[in-house]
Design a protein around this nucleic acid. Structure first.
Lengths: 224, 224
DNA sequence: ATTCTGTATTCTGTATACAGGATTATGCGT
DNA sequence: ACGCATAATCCTGTATACAGAATACAGAAT
């Protein structure tokens, strides 16, 4: 395949982002969506050809993904899709909980009414998808709400760490939302979160977020 | 220079770690120690020659450092040592505070007496350096104590995030410890931290750590 | 039949080559 | 002397080539 042509088409006239970021994003998605499964070894030539890219930029992307924790680099033996143990997942949820609790505290202080209103809008759209039983769309908005909530804290470093953790957990969390009653519970918790945020009721908000992420563990722990 | 010979000497008979990690570590140190200054552009050929490495592995190392947040990658224009604004430093300290508070809570639950004893030993050694006025050694142990404290929580993901944040802040924090009265205050806070940890007095420990990192901000904010 | 060893193959790790874009220097016109 | 256009240089981004390590395989010895 002629990689150059493919790339030109893919990026259009204006270069939207560097090829490096494009490869990283693509691989990240492939890992999150399970196209590349945990424990799977990533052969550079083969993978590069499937993306229409040579080994050099691919290897660079793999180094980035390793730093993000999605890929494990074994010296002399290449890259492997990282797999997480039960404890890993628990540890990550504990951590993401602390991050969102921090974000909640900061958000109640610094977020503008307008920003909060936008989260409410996302939430309402999510509820619509919930009521329509559209799991995929629900899930996507769910993630986006958590991201937006953290963004309200106006702390880019926090947002970045949260995003990488969320990426690691994405696959696992998706599995966890099985079952209508658990789904309903998660939805109710979100309802409370947005309500507390609108009232800027810090302690309630922190408490619910804590509960929400504790429950998230209960929801996923059997899946790992 | 003949890079191969240099490398063989540097790594010895048994390969201790991959060259990639070696370059990353080396560059990280160079950035932290100010050999490469914030905002400085990193020319690949030049930098590679100074490390005895060609562009390919160097570029891979730069991608890793970019993911760690020590280097900024500008598409089409290469790598620059990242510089942090006042707000960046504040945001990072807020974040590291939340992480250490979380670590404190977990540590009080899960750490063994033996592990806590080892932190006490580090602390005593640090105090010796403090009393001897050995700033560099004091500083080194200071960092190590914070790292160990987080390690007590037995959450590798937390430890990893904490470590990258600490790396970003290392240079700035070192500057901040100027002045004997501020140094004394920091030392006293550490004293209290270890004491609370030994008693497994969670709330006191969290409070002191919070205070310690709030003060850390006061100590460094004029330096940035 | 099994294990060990030597060989062949495959893959990683590093260096180099080449193309395109960015930056700097130069020269011309005003 | 200053600004702009053009050319030269440098640097990045990507592909490819080569060396060495890891793995797989086959045959021999026990």
């Amino acid at each position: 395949m002629d990689g150059t042509a493919e790339r030109t088409v893919g990026r259009g006239i204006i270069e939207r982002q560097s090829l490096h970021q494009e490869i990283v994003s693509r691989l990240r998605d492939m890992i999150i969506e399970g196209e590349l499964q945990p424990g799977e070894r990533l052969y550079e030539i083969q993978l590069g050809e499937s993306l229409g890219v040579s080994r050099t930029p691919l290897r660079e992307a793999l180094k980035s993904l390793a730093s993000e924790g999605l890929v494990e680099l074994i010296p002399g033996r290449g890259a492997v899709v990282r797999q997480f143990t039960r404890k890993d997942v628990h540890d990550m949820l504990v951590l993401i909980r602390a991050m969102e609790e921090l974000a909640a505290r900061l958000a109640c202080e610094v977020a503008s009414d307008d920003e909060i209103r936008r989260v409410r809008e996302l939430h309402d759209r999510m509820r619509a998808h919930y009521e329509a039983g559209e799991r995929m769309e629900y899930y996507r908005l769910n993630q986006q709400i958590h991201t937006s909530l953290v963004a309200l804290a106006d702390n880019p470093h926090l947002s970045a760490f949260h995003a990488t953790l969320q990426a690691r957990l994405k696959r696992i969390r998706f599995i966890g939302h099985e079952g209508p009653e658990r789904w309903a519970a998660a939805m109710a918790e979100h309802e409370d979160i947005v309500a507390a945020l609108e009232k800027r009721d810090v302690e309630t908000l922190v408490a619910i977020i804590g509960k929400h992420l504790h429950n998230a563990w209960l929801r996923v722990r059997d899946a790992v």
